[in-house]
């Protein structure tokens, strides 16, 4: 084994260790989710007799409509990703390169994100109530778009700024319109940043709790709220909520795996230009 290879394996070990350490809570949840309530109560080091009953509960046996909760979460998260990108890409480009709104757009977005989510609880309830969108998936897509737009605008601003202006100027010389430059020149270069934004928006929308609590009551309930049903007035159902936590990370993981082609395969600005 040559030294370069050895160094790469060293990286594997180091990254692997970090990946395990940050995921101790998740692995613990996985472990607990297969233990019976009795075995959980006997302490963390007891293995006992494995059971899948918590997964049955987390998939609906506990009397809650979990398949529906998962579906709602997926629709809300995908919808929010699409809407956020649709709004953020053109307007951020316009702000950074064409002078639309100038620095105001970014300052305002950042200011918005400084407000605690609770601030918006009642106003958003009233707004969605007036629009007839309470307890609907579109209502929650709009709310999550609102929550995540600042993040997308800030990240994309940094992304657009990273691209040398010469790239655009070259395209302009070739006679490309502004729209074409954005669509065919800049977006491929910025693919990694766009994908990172999409992943983050998906995750944050998937994880939203407070807006879901305020805006949904039964039809649009997402999985985060569904899981809260296991925090009961007679304690926390540790096994059930662990199983739900494990299951609820799978869709974002799938989304990240799908997205990571663009993140990991080294599709970099240099490669495109080269």
């Amino acid at each position: 084994m040559n030294s370069r290879k050895r160094r790469l394996w060293g990286t594997t070990v180091a990254v692997g260790l970090i990946a395990i350490v940050v995921n101790v809570p998740w692995f613990n949840a996985l472990f607990v989710s297969f233990k019976s309530d009795g075995d959980i109560s006997r302490g963390a080091t007891v293995v006992g007799t494995p059971t899948t009953s918590h997964y049955a509960n987390a998939l609906g046996a506990a009397g809650y409509d979990f398949p529906r909760f998962f579906l709602n979460s997926a629709l809300i998260a995908l919808g929010a990703v699409a809407l956020v990108l649709l709004i953020a890409i053109p307007s951020t480009y316009s702000a950074i390169r064409l002078g639309f709104g100038g620095r105001f757009i970014m300052n305002a977005s950042s200011g918005l994100r400084l407000l605690p989510a609770i601030f918006f609880a009642v106003p958003y309830f009233l707004l969605m109530s007036n629009l007839g969108l309470l307890d609907t998936v579109p209502g929650l897509i709009l709310a999550n778009t609102f929550l995540n737009l600042p993040l997308a605008i800030i990240l994309l601003s940094a992304g657009f700024r990273d691209v040398p202006v010469e790239v655009e100027e070259a395209a302009k010389v070739d006679g490309a319109s502004t729209y074409r430059i954005l669509g065919s020149v800049l977006m491929p270069i910025l693919a990694p940043s766009l994908v990172a934004v999409a992943v983050l928006v998906f995750i944050f929308s998937w994880n939203d709790y407070l807006f879901a609590l305020v805006l949904s009551s039964s039809n649009a309930t997402p999985i985060t709220l569904g899981a809260a049903n296991f925090v009961t007035s007679t304690g926390i159902r540790w096994g059930d909520i662990s199983a739900t936590a494990v299951l609820s990370t799978l869709p974002p993981v799938l989304f990240a795996i799908f997205a990571q082609r663009y993140l990991v395969s080294g599709l970099s600005a240099g490669a495109v230009k080269g």
């Binding site: 309830f125 305020v214 809260a228 049903n229």
Partner: peptide
């Protein structure tokens, strides 16, 4: 059904 603590938060809203 909401969770124990959130029931009252939601109702307050």
């Amino acid at each position: 059904l909401l969770s124990r603590q959130d029931t009252f938060s939601k109702e307050a809203t």
